[in-house]
Simulated scan of single mutants.
Amino acid sequence: MIFVLILLTVCLIMTVMLIKRRQHENNKPIIAAYHRSPLNQSDQPTGQGLAPSAFARTNPDAPSFSIMIVDDQQAIRMLLRELFEQEGMTVYEACNGASAIETAREKQLDFILLDLKMPDMDGIAALRGIRKANGAVQVAMITAFGDPGTIETAKQLGVQSFFTKPFDIEQVKNSVMNHLLHPAGKEDPQE
């Protein structure tokens, strides 16, 4: 039942994004950028019909960040991938904890969005493996269940933020960007 609710929420979010995207396409020229994804070596169009984000427009010399999205639900990974690619970020995806740990070993990552509940291992076990590979990467957790003990363990492992499904994608984006632009935990005075 929870899976159905989550799936319906994701579908609703994707529908809203599609509507916003179409409204945006009617007001902006089409911009197509091609990025080579490190996990999929084919060229993929990204950002079609979307203007660059306010961050990208106001700061063309901004540093390029990389993020890994770890979730067993493909729709969530796809939604977040599109969101962060619009910000000019390199996006990696992992569908389970084992592939997340492997990617953390092989790639230089600035931020990880990590699901707490996955089929092969939970997010805490995956985070412990990620921390062995990269102790400094910033991490936020995505969860449908907020067990206080698990959240405390995640905080001890350096998790900075928690997002409960269904989450507001703008809130996720703003939080991630704030953590990347102000890694010492300083809040952005404009937010």
Rank of each mutant, 00 (worst) to 15 (best):
Q108P: 07
G146K: 12
R81M: 12
G97E: 02
I13P: 01
F65Q: 03
L7S: 13
T90S: 10
A184T: 11
A140D: 04
E191M: 15
I30A: 07
T9R: 06
F111R: 00
Q160S: 12
G185L: 05
C95K: 11
P166L: 07
G149K: 10
I101K: 02
P166S: 06
D115M: 10
D110Q: 07
I30L: 13
L18I: 09
K173I: 05
D122H: 05
K132W: 08
L181A: 08
P29A: 09
S37A: 13
G123S: 07
L80M: 12
I101Y: 05
R81S: 09
L5I: 07
I13Q: 11
K173E: 03
K20E: 11
L8S: 11
E152K: 09
E25H: 08
P38E: 11
V176Y: 00
T15Q: 15
V159R: 00
K173V: 04
A32R: 14
L18P: 01
S42W: 14
C95W: 04
D188G: 07
V16S: 12
T46L: 12
D147Y: 10
M1S: 10
H35C: 14
L18D: 09
K28L: 05
K173M: 03
I112S: 01
A98H: 12
A184W: 11
D110E: 10
M89A: 05
E152W: 11
A126V: 04
L180T: 07
I13V: 15
I31D: 04
A94Y: 00
T143P: 02
F163E: 08
A75L: 11
S53R: 01
A140R: 02
Q41V: 13
D120T: 10
Q86F: 06
R128H: 04
A54M: 13
A126M: 10
Q41E: 14
V4H: 11
C11W: 13
